[in-house]
Every structure is written in structure tokens, then in C-alpha cells.
């Protein structure tokens, strides 16, 4: 946690990556910069709840220090806000446990305290969870198979904004899609806290079966390094064209 800001990427996808960088190792690198990577896998209506094809969803989140869930499109709204909240709490918990270790010594974490003392630590964590600043970058898979799930995705983002608006702390979100026809990743909405701007975001869908998840993650993560007033630098973070990606089209 950096200056009271929790930074997260939320990846929403329905399949395995099949091109570009390895998303699991990219996710690990992103986590090292203090950004959590959470992943939600969206199932087809006729898919079973635990398809092997979506194992990558769990692996990316695990490497990124985040949370993963695999759900049907209908359950996206509940899931998106819950994953975001739980991951934020997890980050805060990690931060508080580190503090505890500094005070009480190496082996101390919340659970090694007696239940009564734990209650007080919990209140501190809740206070932090309510008041810290939160930055969420949503990276949406817009490969052809996602097309019929897009209305659910949009609805779930509206719902997420409702939950974020209810917090005392401030928040910023931005939205990226991958892939598009010509690019690996594209910015749809720059950092904002204005939920109304969500309504104007209409991604165009890619055709063909290419899902460059790793490369997209890596490029999108750069958005966290750009300070918000920095117009010059901002252009570099999105609209990235990966040469290997173009060749294969």
C-alpha cells in the first residue's frame, strides 16, 4: 500500500490466453509493483462450474496476489463488487499484519492474537478499508466470444460504481479492452471517478480467436505509472501495437 492508495487490476475474461507474453509471469511482475491482479472468469451458460479451460484464471490471480472467481454472466454484478472489496481488504490485512510484526515481532499476525484483541485490529482495518483511496483498472476481454456477455459486464461495472460511491474514501477507475482489430489493448475510459461516463463506453469487438492476455495486462498496468495530469506520458500507456500480434492476423 502506497500513501493510503490501494491499486488493483480487474481482468474479466472468458477464455485462455493464446498469444503474447505469459499472463501468469506478467501478473507476478505487476504484483511486485504493489498492484493486485484479480481475475473473473465468465462461463458460457452450458459450461460446468469448474472447467479446466479456465484454470488460468486462478493462476493469474494467485500470481498477482489477488482473488479469482469463475461465474456465469448473470452473477457478474454480485461478483465484481465483492471481488474488488475482498481484494482491497486483503491488501489492507497484509499491510496491517506487516505493521503488527514490526510491533510484536516476526511471527505475529492478526490470527495469533486472542479474539478480543483481534476485534480492535479489525476495527482499524475496517476504518482503512472505508477511507483509503482505491484505483481500479478494469481490463475487459472483448474477443468475439465475449460479445453476448457484454451487457452483463457493463451492468456489473455500473454496480461496482454504486459500491465505490458508497465509500468514504475516494476512488478512480479506468477501463481497457483487449484485443481490438488492430491493437493488443485499448483505453476505453481514462482514470475518472464519474460513473456517468461509463454509459458512453462502447467497445468494438475483435474477430478471430486471439486472446493476448499477458501482453494486454502488461501494457494496461502502465496506466498506474502515469500521474494524472501528465498528458504527454499518457499516450504511451495505451493503444499499444504488438508486432507479433499483427502478423498473426
Amino acid at each position: 500500500m502506497n500513501k493510503g492508495t490501494v491499486s488493483q487490476i480487474l481482468l474479466i475474461t472468458d477464455g485462455c490466453s493464446n498469444q503474447g507474453e505469459d499472463p501468469v509471469s506478467v501478473s507476478q511482475q505487476i504484483a511486485q509493483e504493489g498492484i493486485t491482479v484479480n481475475v473473473i472468469g465468465v462461463l458460457e451458460d452450458d459450461q460446468t462450474e469448474d472447467p479446466t479451460g479456465l484454470q488460468e484464471v486462478n493462476d493469474i490471480a494467485e500470481a498477482g496476489g489477488g482473488i479469482s472467481r469463475i461465474v456465469y454472466a448473470d452473477d457478474l454484478s454480485e461478483t465484481v463488487q465483492m471481488v474488488t472489496k475482498q481484494a482491497m481488504n486483503q491488501t489492507i490485512q497484509g499491510y496491517v499484519n506487516k505493521e503488527l510484526q514490526q510491533i510484536f515481532g516476526k511471527e505475529t499476525d492478526e490470527e495469533s492474537l486472542p479474539p478480543e484483541t483481534r476485534g480492535e485490529v479489525q476495527e482499524v482495518m475496517e476504518e482503512l478499508g472505508e477511507t483509503c483511496d482505491l484505483k481500479v483498472l478494469v481490463l475487459v476481454d472483448t474477443s468475439a466470444s465475449m460479445q453476448n456477455k457484454m451487457s452483463s459486464v457493463k451492468e456489473s461495472l455500473d454496480d461496482l460504481i454504486l459500491s465505490l460511491d458508497a465509500r468514504a474514501g475516494s476512488h478512480y477507475f479506468s477501463i481497457y479492452q483487449f484485443p481490438t482489430r488492430k491493437k493488443v489493448v485499448k483505453e476505453l475510459l481514462d482514470w475518472t471517478n464519474d460513473g456517468d461516463r461509463l454509459a458512453k463506453v462502447f467497445p468494438k469487438f475483435a474477430v478471430g480467436g486471439i486472446t493476448p492476455t499477458g501482453t494486454a495486462l502488461k501494457e494496461a498496468a502502465k496506466a498506474f505509472h502515469i500521474s494524472m495530469g501528465d498528458e504527454v506520458m499518457r499516450g504511451a500507456a495505451y493503444d499499444v501495437v504488438d508486432s507479433s500480434y499483427r502478423q498473426s492476423l
Partner: peptide, 13 residues
């Protein structure tokens, strides 16, 4: 999730 137990028992207390 131990946080659930701590939070809810806090409320009941």
C-alpha cells in the same frame, strides 16, 4: 475467513 467472525462478533458485542 477469520475477519468475518471478528467483524460479526464485534457487532454483537
Amino acid at each position: 475467513d477469520p475477519a468475518v467472525i471478528t467483524a460479526e462478533s464485534n457487532v454483537l458485542r
